[in-house]
Amino acid sequence: MQKAPNRPKHEVTQSYNDGVVKIYEVRNIAEAGYTPKKGLALRYSLRFDEQRLGINRLYMSRQNQAQILRVLRVQRVKDISPQDVVIVEGRQFKIDTVQSVKDIYPPSLDLALTATVHEYGVVE
């Protein structure tokens, strides 16, 4: 007989079945002695679950002159920040906000994504 996992009360199990998101930091990728050049260096490769972009979030972002395009839920890791860039399905996005999600198992983060101003080169 299979036993259900032991979780604290009222927590919902979160699946991450919608794909893989790669999270990059923007840093200088030029060789020593050359003019600095910004590029992307891989930090994390995580599975994600696409979340609904609610009407409140959409209008609040427009009020702040930001156009949120997607919201992705990923497993919680230490140091994802709004200075990072993500690549999902071949497109680059800038992280607008990082929010912790409560009552979800495993602990998760919601990443609100906006369009990038310029495309960066990727260093793997």
Results as ranks from 00 to 15, higher is better:
4 A>E: 10
11 E>W: 11
70 R>K: 15
85 V>F: 09
3 K>F: 10
35 T>P: 05
60 M>L: 11
97 T>D: 10
44 Y>V: 01
77 V>L: 10
11 E>R: 14
26 V>Y: 03
93 F>S: 08
66 A>P: 03
79 D>N: 15
121 G>R: 03
54 G>E: 09
103 D>T: 04
49 D>N: 10
109 L>D: 00
11 E>H: 14
96 D>C: 07
74 V>H: 08
119 E>R: 12
68 I>W: 05
56 N>W: 05
108 S>Q: 02
99 Q>K: 14
38 K>S: 15
98 V>R: 05
119 E>S: 11
117 V>P: 01
102 K>N: 13
113 L>M: 05
5 P>M: 07
26 V>M: 02
97 T>F: 08
123 V>N: 03
20 V>T: 15
80 I>R: 00
81 S>V: 12
110 D>Y: 02
100 S>G: 05
45 S>N: 09
90 G>P: 10
19 G>W: 10
30 A>L: 02
25 E>K: 13
19 G>H: 06
59 Y>H: 08
47 R>A: 15
96 D>Q: 08
85 V>L: 04
119 E>P: 06
3 K>P: 00
96 D>M: 08
78 K>V: 04
98 V>K: 10
114 T>I: 11
37 K>Q: 15
107 P>L: 08
50 E>W: 00
30 A>K: 06
119 E>H: 15
87 I>F: 04
43 R>E: 12
